[in-house]
Computed example of a mutant assay.
Amino acid sequence: MTWDDYAVVWSGLHGGFDPRQASPLVRGWVRGAYRIGSWLARNRVGPLAVTLAGLALCLAVPLAALTGPPGLAAGAILVLLAAAADGLDGAVAVITGRITRTGFVYDSVADRIGEIAWLAAFWVAGVPGWLTVCAGAASWLHEYVRARATAAGMPDIGVVTVGERPTRVAVTITGCVLAALAALIVPTWTVPVLIVAVTVWLTLQLIGLAQLTRAVRAALR
């Protein structure tokens, strides 16, 4: 499959958004996934295997966090690799012609479980449980509203909000890295830095939910 063919199919799966017309960063990310996905497809690696690998990486993050600040730094790397796998399973599915509705469901479920694992890592590192639960609930509600709106007839994703999954990835990685660095300066700063990270996560989810709710009302009115 050529890059242009891949871009057309990818666009159809993402609300008509053409990666060839995107910013250099987004275009580079999608094209990178295409190249790595092509290599995986040539080596007979299926999309489900990539999804499961990404999920395993996510589940390892709270285990790494149990070891303290060094584990948080390792957790940041695990989240980055899991995010890469999240993009690659779809690429492999497109390239191998194995796009299925069940695969879409598996991928979405793996994403939600992975995010729970990231928040669990914050919790075991010292963030209050109520705050991590609120952040997770806001993320879940963000995705649930979009899913129900699509089922109700919304023709596309509605709007790209400030609380999308890439934002959660960025907040998690940044929070883990900054907390690990803070521990080198003042060990007692680790937990406050993580609390700030989860607070930012929650705030962006609530703003994103408001943006999405407005778009859903406009689309279904």
Rank of each mutant, 00 (worst) to 15 (best):
T161W: 00
G46E: 03
H14R: 14
F104V: 15
D107S: 06
V186R: 11
L25G: 10
A218F: 14
A33S: 13
G15C: 06
A41Y: 02
L72F: 05
G46S: 10
R101C: 09
D18P: 05
A56D: 01
G103K: 03
A64D: 00
V200P: 00
W118Y: 13
W3E: 13
V26L: 15
A179D: 02
H14Y: 12
G97V: 02
L194C: 04
D107I: 01
A183N: 06
L72C: 07
A84L: 11
G114A: 05
W123D: 07
P62D: 04
P70W: 04
A22D: 09
L78M: 12
L81Y: 06
L220Q: 04
W29Y: 15
C134E: 14
Q21Y: 12
I116Q: 15
T213D: 11
M1S: 15
L78H: 06
V26A: 10
R98Y: 06
I116E: 12
V160H: 14
R42M: 13
R31C: 11
V186D: 12
R35M: 14
D111S: 05
A210K: 14
G126M: 05
V193W: 00
D86W: 00
G158R: 02
D86A: 01
L141V: 14
G28M: 08
A215F: 04
T213P: 08
V160G: 13
T67Y: 09
I185N: 10
T150S: 15
P70R: 10
G126L: 04
A218D: 14
L181C: 07
A56W: 01
V8T: 15
G15K: 07
V160P: 04
A152I: 09
F104P: 09
W130G: 09
G16S: 07
C134L: 15
A22T: 06
G37E: 02
T102G: 11
I36N: 09
A73I: 10
T96K: 03
R221T: 15
M154H: 10
A137S: 15
T190K: 03
A60R: 05
E143M: 12
S139Q: 07
G158P: 05
R221Q: 14
A121N: 05
